[in-house]
Design a protein around this nucleic acid. Structure first.
Lengths: 254, 254
DNA sequence: CGAAGTGTTGAAGCAAATCAATTTTCGTGG
DNA sequence: CCACGAAAATTGATTTGCTTCAACACTTCG
């Protein structure tokens, strides 16, 4: 099974065999984590950097009023907290959303990796892609209606999961509750429910059995005002869709 | 007059005299830009990286419906588009908000700088701080009321301008219109106007004559649920407030 | 001095929140 | 495999924060 980190980085950086080996070596120390567990909480300065290999996780932050904002979904190949190696302390928390497999990379190994310029650039590229996605989320929240926001989110994950070969032709695994969707797009759970009904009526999205079905991706993208290239995931070549077989639910640890 | 880039980087990275000289050399090529000019627009792949030396600018993005979302304010010492050196193409635009002085750094010089590991880390730190601020904006949009959002914004700029010595004790220059504020926090201009009135009634913020006055920063921060350390600007030492003298309006080019 | 840009006010309408009740699905142990 | 309890999804009624539209006032600058 290919290492999703390497698959992802190849979309934005040029790697040598030696680079791939170094990254492969760094991601050997794997651990299973159950769904809905915190990997790191705000204020921590973990010794290890975490990387998702299988499953789905999210960044989130609590407000003093008890609100929760989900700020990113983390799919296989995504770093959870590369920034703590430089910034020092977590300003938000990370939690799994499904049973997952997570890599622990000691900070010293990260220091080692980033001292090699090609890998340095690849990892920097990855953090810049995260930042671009974050900007897209901000536009989403500020300028689009709630139903467009939700549609936009599903477009983004379609594209991101495709780049690591985890989307099928007409959809992907989606173990996320309506409450979590609500905390993502900044509306109430009741409203998320009503939005989902109108999206289904329009034939744009169907959610059921922990899966999302997208009958017509182009129509959904048009509705959501989604432009794939703002995610910068295609600078080398678009990944073939529907590599199939892999699931967001952790099944293997090999 | 100190180079605001260096002043800023010293808050998060350890620099040698040689590093400072290299950064100073890289920021010699300065240009005046009038208020409300685009520095770069979406889709461009500029040859130079831009850096704000004096004045105020913003990142923004237009939606297909004609909406504008401002995604960041850029103060002296901030890079506008360091990411194009790695991502290639701009996914958003940058515009000045006041008369400004901007540095142009050729891409080759940037390549040179980031190949030096200490400077590499300093610049990476700067992009991670930008990302942390962006996360804070997302929480703001998703979880806080419109009046808190506005208050939060003014807290953020107070802290950021202090770190480069551009805030006075009770406020700072603020050449931004209510329409621009509206496009920042995702509400209508009419509503921004009404929010500003209630904030003034509560003695939290006063806007007039292109300046913002903050009578009691602690009260404002409490109201906005603002936590300074989530901006990661104080990892070494908090900058002394009220260095005074410098203005957001460009006056000198020396 | 006049015009354009910016700020202010009021009234009506709408998207989404809130509260509360009910149904469906899921996970677990018997 | 079924029964049970808990979690998640659904529905309806009411309230509210914000938008929209339209008019008007102030300020800044050529």
């Amino acid at each position: 099974m290919p290492n999703p980190l390497i698959v992802k980085l190849e979309h934005g950086a040029r790697l040598t065999d030696g680079d791939r080996r170094a990254l492969e070596d760094a991601s050997r120390n794997r651990r299973r984590v159950a769904a809905r567990e915190d990997l790191i909480v705000e204020g921590e300065a973990p010794d290890d950097v975490h990387l998702i290999i299988e499953g789905l996780a999210c960044r989130y932050k609590m407000t003093s009023g008890g609100g929760r904002q989900i700020m990113a979904y983390l799919v296989p190949g995504d770093f959870c907290d590369l920034h703590v190696a430089i910034l020092g302390e977590m300003d938000h928390a990370i939690a799994t959303l499904s049973d997952s497999v997570v890599v622990h990379i000691p900070r010293a190994t990260i220091e080692d990796l980033v001292s090699q310029l090609r890998i340095n650039r690849a990892l920097w590229w990855a953090t810049l892609v995260d930042e671009a996605i974050l900007r897209e989320w901000l536009v989403n929240m500020g300028q689009r209606s709630a139903d467009q926001r939700l549609a936009h989110l599903f477009c983004e994950l379609l594209v991101r999961l495709r780049t690591v070969g985890l989307a099928e032709e007409d959809g992907y695994d989606w173990p996320v509750t309506q409450e979590e969707l609500a905390d993502t797009i900044g509306v109430s759970t009741v409203h998320v429910n009503r939005i989902l009904q109108t999206l289904r009526e329009q034939g744009l999205i169907e959610l059921s059995h922990r899966r999302v079905r997208i009958p017509d991706a182009d129509r959904l993208m048009a509705f959501a005002d989604f432009t794939p290239n703002s995610l910068h995931l295609d600078s080398r070549r678009r990944a073939p869709a529907g590599a199939g077989g892999l699931s967001l639910q952790a099944e293997s640890l090999h």
